[in-house]
Amino acid sequence: MSVLVGRKIRKVYGKKSTAQEVLKGIDIEVQKGEFVGIMGPSGSGKTTLLNVLCSIDYPTEGIIEINGQNLRGMKEKALANFRREQLGFIFQDYNLLDTLTVKENILLPLSISKQPKAVVESRLKELVGILGISHILNKYPNEISGGQKQRTSAARALIANPTLVFADEPTGALDSKSANALLTNLETINQEKSATIMMVTHDPVAASFCSRVLFLKDGAIYTELYKGDKTRQQLFQQILNTQSILGGDGYDA
C-alpha cells in the first residue's frame, strides 16, 4: 500500500527573471513500512523535496498524496492538523523547546488533541523504553546530550502514531556513536512497529540503515538502491560507489 505518492513535483524559487528550478518533476512513491533514505550532493534539492512532501512548503507544480489525501488545495489550518495527526518530524537541530522538559516536549503534539492520559502514558513508556531515554524524562533539553535530544525528538515524532515520519539530517549534529544508536532505534521502530520513515541524509552510514535509498542530482532522481537481502555493509559499499559516480566535486559528505 502506498503511503506517499508524489507525481511530477516541480519547485521553482524566485521570480521569472531569476527563477531557479530546484525540483525538476520528481516522481516518488513510498510503501507502508518502508525506511527510505534520500541522498544527494549539496544543492541537489533533498531538503526542498522533504519540505514539499511534508507540506511545510508548497510545490510549484505536481501532486502529492499522503495516505490517499491530496495536499493541494488544503487550507493552512487543515494542513497543520494533518501534519500534527498524520506526520512526525525529526530535524537536524533537534527543534526541542528549551522551556519544556523532555516528557513535555515528547507529548507536545498531543497538547491540543484530547486523548486519554492512560493511553498516552503507555505509548510514551513504550517509546522511551525503545529509545532508552526513560531516565531523563524530567530533564530540560540543555541538560542532556545531543544524542538524547535527538532521541527525544524521535519520540516526539512518533508519539501521535503517525502515518509517516520525516527525518531531515537527523544524525547531522551527532557524534558517530550517538548517530548509530539513534539509527538503530529508528530501524527497530521501523521494523517492529512498522512505522514508515523517510530520511534525508548525506551520511552513507546513516543511509545504509534504510531499506531503499534515492539519489538526487540537480533536482531530479538520479538512481535508487534497494537493500533487499543485502547486509548493511553491502548496501553501504553500494552507496559509496554510487556517490563516487555521482561526481566528486561539490560533495560535502
Partner: peptide
C-alpha cells in the same frame, strides 16, 4: 524559533 518548530510539527496560527 519556537513558533517555527510548532508550526512545522503541525500547530496552526490559531492554535
Amino acid at each position: 524559533e519556537s513558533y517555527v518548530i510548532l508550526r512545522k510539527i503541525g500547530f496552526s496560527t490559531t492554535h
